[in-house]
Design a protein around this nucleic acid. Structure first.
Lengths: 187, 187
DNA sequence: TTCATTTTTTGATAATTGTCAAAAGTAATT
DNA sequence: AATTACTTTTGACAATTATCAAAAAATGAA
């Protein structure tokens, strides 16, 4: 079962129906490292669930490539705001590793929303979750030093430090690459 | 009609029904300057529409009072994440002016969600809107100097500068009060 | 008006972090 | 193994902004 559906109980008949319906709508896709899922300006017509691999969302700001999101196994991947607003995304989504995704289209997802009351709030919950992550990032950026932010990141995403380059993590944390390098070594 | 319902067309019979249903569920409330709507730890069981007045959301961080939101006429007011997650809020909501609000309860709102397909996506859209605001704040905090952030704020919320104290705006922008004072005068 | 409280301003200083430039290290390809 | 490209580290320096302390200004109440 996909992480998105963890709130279901496959023993309940009505949940089983939902599950079957869901399974009839999804597609499995694989992408190679380095490939792009979206470029800035793309329409985001699908929601993805990462089964294996790693995706980086980024954008250009003041001539620099800035990371704003990493999505790994078990997480939902898309340009969340653009997906729900039906607008072009400003981000680039790029595979940092060979990845396997489950794909569902916006319209199919909406069909599920309408068909299953239990599923209906999923979209909002997804937004709330992402909102919470943003609140925390803002909080870190506003109140903690670069050193502290690095420490938080390591606590929560130690595994990513092995899989993502220093520069990408630095821009995600709002720190220059040089400073992050110093922080990592000095201590 | 309330700003929340601006997507409705009162000439359509089905929208008229929604509107009447909505009106039967709301309450009008007035609060005096200085009163609190929520304290940290409060349950947020209502959504408010500010008709007149100004509300400030804040929290304590490192011994300081930090503003994170101002809500004025025409805007929706609550601790948005706590409201939808049904968890206690971490914020304090305080009236900076005598204010008139329209109140609707979480359960009534949900009834409307379920009863009117057209209304159903409202909750998600609210979250998307707030998400967009946060993305922008994060962006400003990460890439612009205090001076630039002040300029942005003045462009978008010139009116608030008259109505909110310098210290409150400083903490909202992630700037010390002294620095904001200097920025405002130096130029 | 006067006193008390709150808010804003000013000055001096220190700390954090970014920037630029170059070197060192690592990985990938021929 | 050698070349090339990319990533990380190091050094020197400058700029932005916070902090602390105190003065000035504004607000509100008696």
């Amino acid at each position: 079962m996909h992480s998105i559906l963890s709130f279901l109980n496959p023993d309940l008949p009505e949940d089983k129906i939902l599950l079957e319906d869901f399974n009839s709508k999804i597609q499995f896709k694989s992408f190679q490292k380095g490939r792009l899922l979206y470029r800035p300006g793309s329409r985001c017509n699908h929601l993805y669930f990462v089964q294996k691999g790693l995706v980086r969302a980024s954008y250009f700001k003041k001539g620099k490539d800035v990371s704003c999101h990493f999505t790994k196994e078990g997480q939902v991947c898309t340009a969340i705001d653009a997906f729900f607003q039906r607008t072009p995304t400003q981000y680039q989504l790029e595979f940092l590793e060979d990845s396997d995704l489950v794909e569902i289209s916006y319209s199919d997802l909406h069909e599920l929303f309408e068909r299953y009351p239990k599923f209906n709030n999923y979209g909002r919950e997804l937004m709330i979750q992402e909102y919470g992550i943003l609140v925390e990032r803002l909080n870190h950026l506003q109140f903690y030093t670069a050193k502290e932010r690095y420490a938080f990141f390591m606590e929560e995403h130690r595994d990513l430090f092995q899989r993502v380059s220093l520069g990408h993590i630095a821009s995600y944390l709002g720190i220059s690459q040089e400073t992050l390098s110093r922080i990592r070594n000095n201590q």
